[in-house]
Design a protein around this nucleic acid. Structure first.
Lengths: 133, 133
DNA sequence: TCGTATCATCTACAGGTGTAATCATCCCGC
DNA sequence: GCGGGATGATTACACCTGTAGATGATACGA
């Protein structure tokens, strides 16, 4: 029997958890990587065991956020989800949830929390000028 | 035996979940409110039952995010956690986690996602000017 | 005074997340 | 050829979250 035509809806917007995100960060910085290499990057920082990284990797594979390529007995992991897509969506979510979709209050908030330094201000000024073209 | 001197460390930075945040929003907008009044605000929007709101409220009380004041047979709920504290902390977390603490890339991200409209730009320009004083 | 409507609390339960031990497989060196 | 180390897969389990029903107290109206 023909099996096709069932997995069309796979833009699977499964949320990436925070721990999973740490793994993605490694992969965005450099890829492909083996599980062990990823662990070398994050295990000390987060005090994880290799097993934990492997679990997270398999969940990320299930969520279609990373792809595997066999390399002998092991796997090489590559990100599928792009960093900018993730950060974009995540930023968007925050702005929507906390500020009703308005970005300006977010910046007011960060300013008040003194989370903006000189460099940020300069960059943002430049960006604004650019956007205004 | 003297029982005291154990609950000093209560700046309890328990995280507020997303559903809990929806309840907080109602309370930030107007307070004090009864559970029923809160439900009237959010139950239709989120398709919740009154019981759900009550559970969320009790969790928020446990987290010291809202306070109760008896009013006859029922309770009036008031926010303890301030909105700006919450949004500030939450924004901070995002910027730290996603952009290494730099706000400018977040801004760039939102710009690229076209999440900034004319009003946002204008407000941010004003804000920048103000910060630059 | 007594039932009942009204509340808050307790209990419940499925799904997600953090964290990891254990299991199964397979290839390399002896 | 075979045992052991490496590596992914499976299983585990506690806690958090979303969602809500059941339970218990209680004050108001009849």
């Amino acid at each position: 029997m023909p099996v096709a035509s069932d997995d069309i809806k796979n833009t699977s917007p499964d949320r990436i958890s925070e721990a999973e995100h740490a793994v993605m960060e490694s992969l965005w910085e450099r890829s492909p990587l083996t599980a062990l290499e990823i662990c070398e990057e994050v295990c000390t920082r987060r005090d994880w065991s290799l097993a934990t990284v492997k679990t997270l990797l398999s969940r990320l594979v299930a969520k279609n956020a990373v792809a595997t390529k066999p390399d002998g007995r092991r796997f090489l992991y590559t990100p599928v989800l792009e960093k900018s897509d993730y950060t974009g969506a995540e930023s968007r979510r925050l702005v929507d949830r906390l500020f009703g979709g308005r970005a300006a209050p977010l910046f007011a908030q960060l300013a008040e929390a003194e989370a903006l330094d000189e460099d940020d201000l300069a960059e943002m000024e430049a960006l604004l000028k650019e956007l205004r073209k």
